[in-house]
Design a protein around this nucleic acid. Structure first.
Lengths: 235, 235
DNA sequence: GCAATAGTGTCTTTAAGACATTATCTT
DNA sequence: AAGATAATGTCTTAAAGACACTATTGC
């Protein structure tokens, strides 16, 4: 923190994503100190000597997002190290994405005075601190892409879920509308993706939907490729 | 370098890949100093305060691999920061992969006494320094995977090449045998992948192969998915 | 009954994979 | 001619997408 002896500092930045009311949302924290005082930023922090990168990410998750390690899927995305990205000095930041199911509102604590979930659609006019817009975009693209080839979409859902909910994850993250019937067939017939349960979800006005839980597989073969639909919706 | 005041150091490590005689090969450098003196290691180096990560990677490429920035495709892969990975202290290393066409033998210089290309098939019994086996594996998997969805294979080839050479890249990197006819159709009919030239390559004993150069596209749609063939060959 | 959502079936189109066939060169 | 490699064609099968249809609930 003392900027007398020039050195490189290493930090982690977290893109915490969840679905809230069917909209893909990211957790941002309002900065209380310069630089970028008052701007919204991704949660993050410097790593200590001897601290593992993942441990630092989980620490930030607990301190700034009130989230335990069991609540999210954490994954390293990319490292940002341009010399000018932080006016305080040379900060190399390892960015992670954390995905979870309907994550709770952040609690005010020692470190954090103001923090909230932002639906991505509402974020266009919000300037982010540092290079966090690029960091966020990088994690978003990673998440969108991994939905194609992996079973990662399930991390956005509770332990038991319906096919409609799963389709909702894809639609929200991709910003695309998927055919319900075709998606149902694809999801249920992809080996290792889902395990069918004997129970059904309470009806939401129509035929009750069967419940599923995550299957043993981690990759989708063949993948579930997004195609240029374009038409989308927050919900 | 002085280990008196504990601090975190940031380094870059490079996985430089090329095809040599049809075999996927990686550049390794024999360490001359402890730790791991005498072991083979990926080229790498510490970054300076104020130096960009990519610039540092290109500097290492020039110093330790005698390669200019035009010769390779450079891409960040992953950052390794486990506290115990370097006995000298806490070193966070940003790993890059660099891909190029038939890269030259490294030259001996100030930094490097012994450096050579290793075909990956010959590397099983070679212990690598630090966690470089994991770093290498991570870059390899990235390269294998990106061949599926992008036009990256072309970076392993000279500016003008034949379909057979392109197929050879896939076969070498994936360690799989591909059907020549089907590959030809797929490569030539994937929009943006290739530009057909009016010339032909000198014959290698059969019908002369038409020459192509890289097309404008960067992604392959639909992708060229690897499937479980298993049978492979270095050549 | 109707509205709403879940789930299945059918048809078309695309594309992969197996493999035969033709084309064009060297010797 | 034989041998080698390049390129194309044919057939089968898998799977995506469009979309109609059936199933099961609440009202």
């Amino acid at each position: 923190m003392a900027s007398s002896a020039p050195a490189i500092h290493v930090a982690v930045d977290l893109t915490v994503l969840t679905l809230r009311e069917g909209r893909l949302s990211v957790l941002l924290i309002r900065r209380e100190e310069d630089p970028h005082r008052g701007a919204w930023a991704l949660p993050g922090g410097f790593i200590a000597v001897g601290e593992d990168l993942e441990d630092a990410a989980y620490r930030v998750l607990a301190d700034e997002a009130s989230l335990g390690s069991g609540a999210v899927h954490l994954e390293q995305v990319r490292t940002f190290g341009a010399p000018g990205r932080d006016p305080r000095g040379h900060v190399v930041s390892v960015s992670f994405m954390a995905l979870g199911a309907d994550l709770p509102d952040p609690q005010r604590g020692d470190d954090v005075a103001d923090a909230r979930w932002w639906a991505l659609g509402d974020l266009a006019a919000v300037p982010l601190a540092f290079d966090h817009a690029a960091v966020l975009e990088c994690s978003l693209e990673r998440a969108r892409s991994k939905l194609e080839y992996t079973t990662l979409a399930i991390t956005f859902l509770p332990a038991e879920f319906t096919i409609s909910q799963l389709r909702g994850v894809y639609e929200s993250v991709w910003g695309a509308n998927l055919d319900a019937g075709n998606f149902h067939r694809k999801a249920t017939r992809t080996e290792g993706f889902l395990v069918e349960l004997d129970r059904h979800a309470p009806t939401t006005g129509g035929r009750p939907a069967r419940l599923y839980r995550a299957g043993p597989g981690t990759s989708l073969v063949p993948p579930l490729l997004r195609v240029g639909d374009g038409e989308a919706g927050g919900r």
